[in-house]
Each structure stands twice: as structure tokens, then as C-alpha cells.
Computed example of a mutant assay.
Amino acid sequence: MKKYIIRNLFFTCLMGLILGSCQDKYFIDSGVHESHYDGTVVDYIKMRKDVFDSLYKVIQLCELESVLNQKGVTFFAPGDQSIRKAVFALNEALYLTGRDSIYTLDQVDPAVWREYLSMYIYNDTYLLKDIPQVDTLNLNIYPGQGFESYGGTNMNLGVNYNDVISEIREDEFQIVKYAGYRQLFISYIRNTGNVGSFGSMVNAPVATSDIQTSNGVIHALEYRRHTFGFVTSNFVNAAITKGIIYK
């Protein structure tokens, strides 16, 4: 038990070295964003170091700056905490197989970063109002819409219409379906042959939508409910298979 605790403390400290600025701001979703920003998508990501510092490093490593700066682009931006969780899982896997952990993001092959970051990028600009309704518990009625990401991955985008729940009297509630606030989701499709089945999609909710820039739009993902790459084991296996870059 003591060995397990020490190992977890080691990995926790290691994440601080990898991702640099471990500030309290990381534990507040994505803060307050301006709806219009006088700059490109990359300019905005670079400016918000409190949330996207490691994301900007990944963008540089996989050379996707020019793609995110082209006219008409939608970017579902994963926060640094989402990247941190993926790297932590990678180091756990490396530890269990007797290999050294990584200390910097550039120890993962750039091709792996590019493959998985491309899942979050879409040609053309899609605001929340442009995306159809999704009900993850009733996909046959409200399935959202299938989209192909910049990297060619089959994904699903949809807006979840929450219910309004009002307490009429003690222990008695009135529920109005789909009348509440709307939240944008991006989902990885595990099984394209049976999208409506349970577990066929891995959903990532958006914390702040419609951050409009001079060349496109950013939707900032809710980091508490998302790990970079959607399926952690896929990212981990890809990084190990491609080969860790030890210095």
C-alpha cells in the first residue's frame, strides 16, 4: 500500500514537470470567454495560457498551426487537464511495463499528437445553432449529426437540450423535457455500424461554446469529463507503438 501511494505521488509530481504551470486556474472549468476575439484560433489558444498552455505546445509539435489559422475552421479545444490525464495514463502504462516515464510532451512522436488532435478540428465554421439536437439516451430520435474530422475520423456533433425540473411541493417535481439550457457535445464513434447502441459513442461536453475568432470558432471542452484522445487506451497504445523518444 505504501509503495502504491509513493508511486502515485511520484506521478502527480511528474505531471507538474511535464505540463509546467500547475495553477489553481486549472481547477476552474474554462473561465469566462469573450464571444468575439480579434485574432485567429491559434492566437486565442496562445493567449489563454491559463487553460491552453500545453495544448499550444501540442499544436506546435504536430505542426497544425497553419490548419487552425486557415479561414473557416471549427476547433473543439481540449484543455491542459485533458492532456495531463492522457499523459498520466501513458506513464502508468510505461511504468507497468518497466519502461521510463516521459518528462516532456515532445517525447511522444509528433505523428501521434497530430493524429489525435486532428479529431478536434473541422473544416468550415459550426456554431452551436448550426448543430442538430442530440439525446445520448435516445439516439434513435435525436442522433445529432455525423461529421468527418480534419484527420478523417468519423465523429458526431450534437446539442443536448436539458430538462427543466421544478419542485411543485415536497418530493414532487414537474419535468419539462428539452426546455432547459443547451450544451454542445462532440463524440467519438466507436462503432460506426451501430451508432445507436449503448456505449457506441464516447461523449465530450463543451464548457464554453461559440468563441468566435477572425478565422473560425472555438468550443472549449469541459476538462473534468474529457481525456485527450477520447479513448485513453487508444492514445496510450499509439504512443507506445510509435515509440517513445528518450533523450
Rank of each mutant, 00 (worst) to 15 (best):
W113R: 04
G16M: 03
Y116A: 00
D163N: 15
V195F: 01
V202T: 15
G199F: 01
G31D: 01
T241M: 01
D106Q: 09
T74L: 04
G193W: 04
F52A: 09
L221D: 02
G151T: 09
L68G: 06
C62F: 02
I186F: 03
E172G: 02
V217Q: 06
L128D: 12
G39I: 12
L157H: 11
A204K: 06
G199Q: 00
S214P: 06
R169M: 10
E92V: 15
D80R: 04
D80Y: 00
N160K: 10
F10G: 11
T136R: 09
A89I: 07
S149N: 06
E92I: 13
G216H: 13
F88I: 10
A204D: 08
P110M: 08
V51G: 00
P110L: 03
I240W: 01
L137I: 15
C13G: 11
G196K: 06
E167H: 07
G31K: 03
D24L: 10
A111M: 11
I45F: 01
N123A: 14
F235G: 01
Y126Q: 06
V32E: 09
D210N: 14
G243T: 07
L127Y: 14
N237T: 12
N140A: 13
M47W: 09
S35F: 11
A204N: 06
A179H: 08
F235H: 07
Y116F: 15
K242T: 13
K247T: 15
I59C: 00
L128Q: 15
L94W: 02
T12A: 07
Y178Q: 08
Y26D: 12
K2P: 04
K177V: 09
I18F: 00
I5M: 04
E115L: 09
G39Q: 01
N138D: 15
K242I: 10
L61V: 14
G16V: 10
Y44H: 03
A220N: 06
Y150C: 05
D135A: 04
V217D: 03
F75S: 01
R182P: 03
A111R: 09
R190K: 12
Y26R: 10
N91L: 06
R114Y: 05
M155Y: 06
I141Q: 14
I165S: 08
D106F: 14
I186D: 07
P205M: 04
P143L: 05
C13L: 13
M15R: 05
K57G: 01
E172V: 15
N138W: 12
L64S: 04
R48G: 05
D80A: 01
D135T: 12
A239Q: 02
T153V: 15
E222I: 07
D53I: 05
Y178D: 03
E170G: 13
N215A: 07
G193E: 14
S54M: 07
M1D: 11
V51P: 03
F10A: 04
L14S: 03
V159A: 08
N162C: 08
N160A: 11
Y103W: 10
L184D: 06
F10W: 02
F185N: 15
V67Y: 02
T227C: 01
D124Q: 13
F76I: 10
V73G: 04
M47H: 13
Q133Y: 11
D43M: 01
Y161D: 05
L128M: 14
F230P: 00
I189F: 00
R169D: 09
I121K: 02
V176N: 11
K85Q: 11
F52K: 04
T208H: 13
V87L: 09
S214E: 06
S35T: 15
